[in-house]
Design a protein around this nucleic acid. Structure first.
Lengths: 188, 188
DNA sequence: TCCTTTTTTTATCCTAGGGTAAAACCTACC
DNA sequence: GGTAGGTTTTACCCTAGGATAAAAAAAGGA
């Protein structure tokens, strides 16, 4: 799951596809739809035009664990599958009705050959994703669940308010009961 | 901190520097030396020819937290500083005598322009790092400290046996006392 | 070798968060 | 507007791992 910070803006994607004569397919997914499942190969680097999605996997006990959220104007994929062809373990679920662009390896290759500066932009997209991942590691590693919850409200209010608490708890790495306890404590 | 999986092999780095007439400086760091500190700009994408290093940061209470280990034939940097010019919060410490190559932006730009296939290789290096980071998130998120400890011995024995337990505990996200308790339990 | 310093273990007590179960609350749809 | 489904809260007890302190073991010197 890779997110842009709008370095590769929506209009750029369209621009390239026009310029290069390479049509990029779009798809709409209804709320609740799981459009990529573990075990399925991930063929696309999804660009989210509209909506919110959740990436989750199943831990060794078979529990759903929310790994990431991604919303409009970001890009997302299952790196180990899309880039390396390995078995995909992630599930992509639409938490709202979503409009997606299906960017393929071919699109990226053509853009790489023909769009000056594309490779640098593309790399920056992925580098920034590593930074986000590192921050998440540091956060889980050293901060309390309460602090992480407050940070999430502060830094990702748009995701927080569009997602149910059970997903947030799972994203934070705690049970929903613990999250509920934390919330009660914070109110009083 | 980005690690290769030897996609960009040592000999390639030398090959490029020869071919392109761009000398890559090397540096030796004695065991215990901290050659990059928080607050200092990170100007290099380090290539570790020999040795073992530890990347750590200080949490909000001022405790050292081990974020990553990196050993010979891997590359490592502080992404947020090297790529984005933001304040570096990471410290790089040599756990053994290290020989390093100091790869700069200039080297990478020249290679990008002149070495066919370099951009793809370079991107793959970073993509693979995102996969490692994701695995670490999943591991901290859902596995017990005991399981993570056993996984570390199994999958990174070379790092495990060259590092002291306090660093391992910190990497696993637990105190050294807890690690000691886990080890005792596993023996009996 | 002895002495100092660092690292690891042990022990005791404590807390954040887990597990289970039930109650309360929403929402949606018939 | 009532009933069924899903979602969140509450309450109970339990456990993994934290904090503090001290002992033991290991690693370096001189």
């Amino acid at each position: 799951m890779v997110q842009t910070n709008k370095y590769i803006a929506l209009q750029d994607i369209y621009k390239w596809s026009d310029r290069l004569g390479l049509k990029i397919d779009g798809v709409e997914v209804k709320k609740g739809g799981v459009f990529l499942k573990q075990g399925q190969k991930c063929d696309y680097f999804y660009y989210i035009i509209e909506g919110l999605m959740r990436i989750f996997y199943y831990d060794r006990e078979g529990h759903e664990v929310t790994h990431w959220f991604s919303s409009q104007d970001t890009m997302i994929t299952s790196p180990d599958s899309f880039f390396n062809g390995n078995e995909n373990i992630l599930n992509f679920e639409a938490l709202e009705d979503c409009k997606l662009l299906l960017v393929t390896h071919e699109h990226l290759e053509v853009a790489s050959k023909n769009v000056p500066g594309f490779d640098e932009l593309y790399r920056k997209l992925i580098v920034d994703y590593t930074i986000q991942l590192s921050r998440r590691i540091m956060s889980i590693h050293t901060e309390s669940a309460e602090y992480r919850y407050l940070q999430m409200i502060k830094h990702h209010p748009n995701i927080f308010h569009r997602t149910k608490l059970s997903h947030i708890a799972s994203y934070l790495g705690i049970t929903i009961q613990s999250l509920s306890r934390i919330r009660r404590k914070l109110i009083s």
